[in-house]
Amino acid sequence: MLSVTNLDVAVNGGMILNELNLEVQAGEVHAIMGPNGSGKSTFANVLAGHPGYEVTAGSVIYEGQDLLQMDPEERARRGVFLAFQYPVEIPGVSNVYLLKAAVNEIRKHRGESELDAVKFLKLVREKLKLVDMKEEFLHRAINEGFSGGEKKRNEIFQMAMLEPKLAILDETDSGLDIDALKVVAQGVNELRDSSRSIVMVTHYQRLLDYIVPDYVHVLAGGRVVKSGGKELALELEEHGYGWIEGQTAELLETRA
């Protein structure tokens, strides 16, 4: 599904990711953890095609194709979805307007016809239930005046509508109270299946109690310094990131 090899990324001349490697197979859920500033969000944004980051070396292959050569919209149409850490407010564009445009762009890309109004509405209603949102919400402007929890739920709702093959969740748990976290997690879990891969970026182990990952990677200094199963997250919780940073320092010394 996704193969990231020796990825180097810079922003404003500063190196943020440094020889990052990651393999994700179809159906797998990967959690990427790490302290603030470790490059987690940069990695999520680079996968989605954010124009503010410069990839200076390495490759990202998605379904056998060079992902880095694609515009953000093409990535989305091919099934890459980023749930934003800070979803932007867009006054004047309603949620439903964007959803319709997005769903139809993706269908067009697949060579399918546009969804008619009845089918579209049916799909919308079904997915709204998944994230426990009311229908009136559709006609509000995108994220305008939404609470933090509503914004995150909206991201998961969009994800459910667009049915991506590779979903990247960037700190979807941040700013959520426990009830909202449960709703969001349930929405994500419903979407888990053997053909869909999920990459979750998170600072805290808490999210992983609700969305249990197959693999956990720890990012520090812009590279994956430790990978393991879900139990790695528990170890981190116990020892804190300092433990990993200590190990990394040793690792780098050994290399040198």
Partner: peptide, 14 residues
Amino acid sequence: DKAVFYLRARGVGE
């Protein structure tokens, strides 16, 4: 620019 990227990330052309 953030809004433009948000929409593009949902599949809408630039």
